[in-house]
Simulated assay, not measured.
Amino acid sequence: MALALLPLATACGDEEPVEKPGPVEPQADAGGRDASTATPDASCADATCDGGTTVQEPPDAGPAEGGATDAGAVDGGAPDAGPDVPLPLPVDLRAPSELLVRGDDFTVLRVGVERREGFTGPVTLAIRGLPSEVFVADRWVSADTNAAALVVSVSGRVGPRTRLDATLVATAEGRSTSRPLRMLVAGPSFTLDPTFPVAPLGWTDGSRFFDVLADGKLLTAYPIASASWPGPQGFVLERHHADGIPDLTFGMLGSVTHTRPAVSRMLAFKTLPTGGSLVAGAAADCHDGDNATPCTILVSRHLATGMLDTSFGDEGVASTRFNAASRSLVKLLVDEVGRVSVALTYYDPTQSGPYVYAVQRWEADGRPVAGFGTEGRAT
């Protein structure tokens, strides 16, 4: 038996008939962003893309105005070299970088002049940059001279602790060289202290020694006056306050007398940090002034009270002998551990030279320093 076949779409009855696509009409652009143009086309760089057509902008033809344009030509003129600068003077100056000068006084600046690079001529030295209160005369240095001295004078109107920055200059043949120089102005060398009396001590002799203690007091020593030969025997110690008034707490109303016949002349005096003192004197065998005769030198150490320090030497006194007369130059020295030295220069005709330098050293207790010369004595 034959069955008639019906179309499937008709049999189901659910689907609409499928229409055949017709020809596509071009659509107008609604202004939205087309996905195909989301990424700019590289071919449109530096150009305007309108509807797929690339419009190239014309190249810049230069300024719009009709003025002439610079064609880029290079100026052929020579560069400006500026004014001519002379070469430095081939001279080296040797001088201190700082100079101390006292107010109302003068000082000397010594300058070394070293010529080089074949220059052998004279130079002129000067100091520039100073105020009118400081006077320095220029100094001409001849060709055969390698050093000179400049005298610097400072007026009293320049106060102490003033710093002046200047320049030391050497000139010759239109050229110059220089180096910095600083001047430090101090107070006058000698200024009277108005708190100290003009003549408080009444000293009339020329053989007096004095020194200043750490607290500002004055300690003085002088020989005992005597009309007998060979002269004074012993000495006197006196102490004064910083204003010149006698210190009545020292000894007997400010003085201590040491009657010692062995001492005919005082040679040296020195104060100690403890307030005590050292006294060097010549014994009676030195009075003749004969260098050929050995001379005994006595050194005594004293306490701050003026009395002998019996812990030194023989009851406060140590001695040594040299071929020296009482006119010899004598110096007392003390080191940081208390060792005492006496140094002197004297004439000895038996030596190769006209003068002899001699030193005697003692330990703090007055014993000769072992290992130094012979029994602490060396010449």
Rank of each mutant, 00 (worst) to 15 (best):
A4N: 07
L5H: 10
L8Q: 14
G22D: 14
V24D: 06
A28E: 14
R33A: 14
R33W: 10
T37E: 12
P40K: 11
A42C: 03
T54V: 15
V55I: 14
Q56W: 12
P59E: 13
D70Y: 07
G77I: 00
P79Y: 05
A81D: 11
D84K: 10
D84Q: 09
V85N: 03
P86M: 07
L93M: 06
R94F: 11
A95T: 05
L99K: 00
D104Y: 09
R110Q: 15
G112T: 06
V113N: 05
R115Y: 12
P122E: 15
G129A: 08
G129E: 03
S132T: 04
D138W: 00
W140F: 13
W140P: 05
V141P: 03
D144L: 15
N146F: 14
A148F: 09
S153E: 15
S155C: 09
G156I: 02
G156V: 06
V158D: 04
R161F: 12
R161N: 13
R163Q: 13
A166K: 03
S178G: 09
P180L: 08
L181P: 00
R182T: 15
L184G: 13
G187V: 01
S189C: 02
F190M: 10
D193N: 15
T195W: 07
V198C: 05
F209P: 01
A214E: 06
K217N: 02
T220N: 03
Y222L: 15
P223S: 10
P223Q: 08
I224N: 10
W229T: 09
G234W: 05
V236W: 01
L248G: 02
T249H: 03
G251M: 05
G251P: 02
M252Y: 12
M252P: 04
L253T: 02
V256E: 09
H258D: 01
R260P: 04
R260C: 10
A262H: 10
A268D: 08
F269I: 07
L272P: 02
G275E: 05
V279S: 01
V279Q: 05
A282H: 02
C286T: 14
D288S: 14
N291Y: 12
T296N: 13
L298C: 08
L298H: 13
S300Y: 01
R301D: 00
R301I: 01
G306D: 00
M307N: 06
L308D: 04
D314Y: 08
A324M: 05
S328Y: 00
L332F: 05
V342N: 11
Y346M: 07
T350Q: 15
Q351E: 14
Y355K: 01
Y355P: 00
R361M: 06
G371L: 07
G373C: 06
T374W: 11
